[in-house]
Design a protein around this nucleic acid. Structure first.
Lengths: 151, 151
DNA sequence: TCTCAAATGCAACATTGTTGCATTTACGCG
DNA sequence: CGCGTAAATGCAACAATGTTGCATTTGAGA
């Protein structure tokens, strides 16, 4: 059970969605809950799998794509491409919580893991260049994929 | 005509391929030529389009995928994902020149600039994780785009 | 020249994502 | 509370990208 009834997250999700100015639907709440429960960005199929674990009715594949895009459009989620070329979605945390740590990207499963180390300061830029964002990515194989390929 | 007969690149391509330890085939030479002529990484369809501009026979779609992967496997090309989730291929310059510096990616024009600073050492990974590659990307606007947007 | 592993071409398939359209639903309003 | 409407959903079909299996061709070493 990904989200226990004791946690008030369901309320929070619907509030967030309402505050974002879009309709509060069961599908959006469930998807946003799933993204919040996840500790790493999820791709479409992973969200689908998460929801399938619920006893609730399954969400249509296309609808899920549209829900994810709508969450991105209204600023509640972030969309990024993983190393396999698949889109992954994560909750858009309040204040750019992805600014201050390093991402490990598994080249096998495409998973993204947040390392605890903080990224080094940005280097000097050539004259006229304007800095916007710094991203420190480490690529390799995660523990699961490493053991599987070693077998 | 992407590659004039006066340039010795065709020879160079075949030499590179031979030196890489794989068979020198017309397809590999043509694809490597196309990648060398390109000033940006090309995706599968773009390489296909380039080759279609030749009067030579077209290369099969699947074969092109395999040629691109083989060039990557033997170290002659690099494979990366673009923002749309599509794989793009570029020639792997002489000695892994992308391993030891930082990339500045302009969010306006999409251009990639190589900064002279060297990336910091990789952080500690969780148990079982296997490191493969480290990438330090800085995003923002380049000098040209900065002045243009300021106008 | 001969031989064989590697490369190619073709067909079929898999995965990811999109579009069109009919139906259902959220939610503001009387 | 019931209505009306725009948004959201479900379904089918399609599009783009990439992969697998297998028969045939070819590069290159003996």
């Amino acid at each position: 059970m990904a989200r226990a009834a004791s946690t008030p997250s369901a309320l929070l999700s619907s509030d967030l969605i309402r505050a974002a100015g879009v309709k509060v639907t069961r599908g959006r709440v469930r998807v946003l809950d799933a993204l919040q429960d996840a500790r790493q960005p999820l791709c479409h199929s992973e969200v689908e799998a998460q929801l399938a674990g619920t006893e609730d009715t399954a969400i249509d594949r296309v609808t899920l794509y549209r829900i994810l895009d709508s969450l991105v459009a209204c600023g509640l989620a972030l969309k990024a491409v993983d190393t396999r070329g698949v889109f992954r979605f994560s909750i858009a945390g309040g204040q750019r919580q992805h600014a201050n740590h390093i991402h490990f990207r598994c080249t096998d499963c495409g998973g993204v893991f947040c390392l605890k180390a903080e990224p080094p300061p940005p280097p000097k830029l050539p004259r006229g260049f304007r800095l916007c964002e710094v991203e420190f990515d480490v690529r390799g194989t995660c523990a699961t994929c490493s053991t599987r390929s070693a077998a």
